[in-house]
Design a protein around this nucleic acid. Structure first.
Lengths: 160, 160
DNA sequence: TATTGTTATACTCTATAACTATA
DNA sequence: TATAGTTATAGAGTATAACAATA
């Protein structure tokens, strides 16, 4: 088993489905393969983001705020399928790192208008580059054509 | 947003990536699409398994035990990338439902030999049929060819 | 009345360390 | 000394309900 402290080193024994699994129904289910893929990818991604003091959720929020200046917390939550209550902690975190700011919305005094700082935008660029390298790593054992095909099919599955 | 109490009803507004997400980097990352797919599938699967008093983990363990009679807990844990400590609860649960039994291993007095009961095998058959129907449902918006392609690529990605 | 942000709470899942009994 | 099963514990992540301010 891969030790928790060094999840980047994935040996064949870890990554590949074991003989015990192969005998079961599980590999016949596409859903199981998707889950299994996500677990593997997510392990690598978590380590990567930790180097930027980000969680997967805060990275996603930063990305959405940058693409949608002055969006409010509820809309970010709805977009990412996160609970509104969970957003508070994430936005606190990102604000604490000086990556985004809570400005007051002009049209609705209940809501905040979220904006990334310059620091946030620069970090997002660096994170983006790091994730591209991460994906090259985790998809190394499938061809470019397979990877493109995978991306296209999943895009359609998830609603274009 | 889909309410928690009725996750089977997935409207377009839920399932599809929102405009806010589409403007961001996220849909460009295959990892994000995999995560998003898993979240959607998992919601439907959870409800399905609840009808059989199973969690995703206990269903997986049952499936592996049936395919590998007399396997011990550590080997199931390793196969499923679950911690040994977590196995205890799951096996307790399955034993409580009379789906599997802890027999004493003949060759190693520290270990159990896990075996599914007849009831466990019958339940597994029913669950398998239900999951096939579930997958037809969650993959309804992609073609059969795309689904086969997805399955084949993910199989390779996950290690054959 | 409904909605935004917030707090508190609880529940699941996962991760870690330490213990016991065997090997 | 290493391994199988176990226990306890702590940390994420997530879900729910309720509240104040505002629409």
């Amino acid at each position: 088993m891969t030790r928790q402290t060094d999840p980047l080193i994935v040996t064949d024994a870890d990554c590949d489905l074991s003989q015990a699994i192969k005998k079961s129904n599980l590999p016949g289910f596409t859903g199981y393969l998707i889950k299994r893929s996500w677990v593997t990818i997510q392990r690598d991604l978590r380590e990567l983001l930790l180097g930027f003091d980000l969680s997967q959720r805060s990275m996603s929020v930063l990305s959405v705020v940058i693409a949608n200046p002055d969006i409010n917390q509820s809309d970010v939550a709805a977009a990412l399928s996160i609970e509104r209550s969970g957003m508070v902690v994430i936005v606190d975190e990102l604000e604490g790192l000086d990556l985004i700011r809570r400005e007051r919305a002009l049209t609705d005094r209940r809501a905040y208008a979220l904006r990334a700082t310059l620091k946030g935008q620069h970090l997002n660029d660096k994170v983006k580059a790091a994730i591209i390298a991460h994906e090259d790593r985790v998809f190394a054992n499938i061809t470019r054509a397979e990877r493109d095909s995978l991306h296209q099919i999943l895009s359609k599955l998830v609603g274009n």
